[in-house]
Design a protein around this nucleic acid. Structure first.
Lengths: 336, 336
DNA sequence: TTGTATGCGTTATCAC
DNA sequence: GTGATAACGCATACAA
């Protein structure tokens, strides 16, 4: 059995409250008593029971990281970074995966409601549903949203400027001489996809290139979906000369399909993919990508959450980060 | 503020203990009272406080998943699978990353010691240190080791048969006509690396191929390390005709270095890599790999842990899983 | 500076 | 079948 605070009090011959104060570096403890207590604690390898501490102090030093999907390498990168930041501040993270199911999200929300965690970071996901909205009204619920837009956003959020990302991609492709640029976006038609499409259209307009609605392909977020969409496109006969793929896994599938079809990148089709991960860099040819600022997304979100927890931040904050365009072989024009 | 069990008791006009029994499906509650209580709980969106429950019942329904490194895609895959299995059984997972630091491992162990989690799964890592060993003597500590060997192993473990994996790779390469097969293994010289080297030597012996000690290259587990080791090999002049790389990231770096050097796979060097992940399958050429049984590693380890927690398993269990060899282009011989 | 008392929300052990 | 009541381990307001 693990030694408890009470045991230490008994051994040291002092009251439990004194031990508690000493252990938590709180004022009001004599130097000598404190030293004695710390010594006993160390000798007996004392570990505070976080459950009891959480129950009494309403602070658990744990945060929930709630993922809409664990498949995206980018999301995993964000989690890694958050874990690192959290560890440095003495926080533990609970990893939750909703698989885009609203039901699960609701159930994970109860981690917050039942004070099991001090806060939660939601990464990705669709529109903010009613359950989340309700939660937002509760001042105790410390929530930060990452890459999740909402019509009415009451949450502190860290966002990627998807519009700007697509804009950069279009601009680059047009400069390379491409005129029939297809956009492969998500199909759930939330604000994020609208942003991408908006960026796409406005960038084309700016460049004086005609927008063709039939070059916009809403697609699921999966490797297979990226594969299939290319086959569909070929079948339909609306042949683009370049692709902008705005999701990580879809990008991989798309490239595979193009190569499988006997076509060459970028000679037959230029490709701008999504996510500066190890995959897009080792694939042949190396992919030009819209690169999400994963590190910053992580550090901002954790920092914001910490501020929320410590109540040093009263009102909602929104940070919008601009993705980079990393140019590699897959988008270098044959026209040059 | 969240509604509590006490509130429900007040509303229903019964004792707290009755509410607790009703909510937990325990016998000793009248049908009608139970129904009434359940109704009130539902109406008020009652969520039990898991901290209090954990404190009182000494069961938290949380397990710790402690990773030696978050960089390996394979490890992440295992985590994903565990998360899935855990979720199905009503368990939450706490994700911890030790970065191969024994200090951190020790600190995460306190999650167990302080009853914050019901059990822990350790994925990867070096030898079992003294702190872990000490923990093994405590009967309350429910611990399962994944891919972690120890001289004296007192833990329930799920292991990959690395020796067999390398054996399969060697056999395949020899059949393809390769005679100078280099082995790139880890450098920490624990039992796992010894196993790999053992499998390598015995497979060569079986095949009647001379073992050359200078073809064994202990290397760090990192992409850059894989890159560097190839440069070193070329510099040294001990030129192999095939590589077996036994770690995921090292494999990627190795392949990049070979291609960067202007060599062709498999014509100049055949490659058998490690880990059937998305990277090794999209890289050019698609890599023959020793494929870790990630799904099984995850399901066995969680299952074992569950049994330990429920005390249906008294003695230590060890499950050894055999990796598959997935043959793709990178190891198909020029000699054919 | 130190000790006492109470509470955090739940489960468990008794009685009745 | 139901209800007090005591834990669980810790933090904190208040008293001394």
């Amino acid at each position: 059995m693990q030694i408890t605070l009470k045991d230490i009090a008994r051994i040291a011959g002092v009251a439990e409250s004194t031990v508690s104060r000493a252990l938590n570096d709180k004022p009001g403890v004599g130097r000598d008593t404190k030293l004695k207590i710390l010594k006993i604690a160390k000798e007996n390898n004392y570990r505070p029971n976080q459950l009891a501490r959480g129950l009494a102090a309403k602070q658990t030093n744990m945060i929930a990281v709630i993922l809409s999907e664990m498949e995206s390498p980018g999301n995993i990168e964000i989690v890694k970074s958050i874990e690192k930041a959290a560890e440095a501040k003495g926080y533990q993270i609970i990893l939750c995966n909703t698989n885009n199911q609203e039901e699960k999200e609701k159930s994970y929300l109860s981690l917050l409601e039942s004070n099991q965690v001090d806060g939660a970071i939601f990464i990705g996901g669709k529109l903010v549903g009613s359950h989340l909205l309700r939660a937002s009204f509760s001042p105790e619920n410390n929530i930060v949203l990452v890459n999740r837009l909402a019509e009415e956003n009451f949450f502190t959020s860290v966002l990627t400027d998807y519009s700007k990302g697509v804009d950069k991609a279009v601009k680059h492709l047009v400069e390379q001489g491409f005129q029939n640029i297809a956009l492969i976006c998500g199909q759930q038609m939330d604000l994020i996809e609208e942003e991408k499409i908006g960026g796409y259209k406005s960038a084309l307009n700016k460049a004086g290139v005609e927008v063709k609605q039939e070059l916009i392909f809403p697609t699921k977020s999966a490797r297979q979906a990226g594969y299939n969409v290319f086959l569909d496109i070929i079948k339909k006969g609306v042949i683009p000369d370049a692709f902008i793929s705005t999701r990580e896994l879809t990008t991989i599938g798309l490239v595979e399909a193009i190569k499988m079809g006997g076509y060459f990148i970028p000679d037959d089709f230029a490709v701008v993919g999504y996510g500066n991960n190890i995959i897009t860099s080792v694939i042949e040819p190396p992919l030009t990508v819209i690169s999400e600022p994963v590190e910053k997304l992580a550090s901002y979100s954790f920092e914001f959450l910490l501020k929320l927890i410590n109540e040093k931040m009263n009102d909602q904050q929104i940070e919008v980060l601009t993705p980079e365009l990393i140019i590699r072989e897959s988008s270098i024009s044959k026209y040059n």
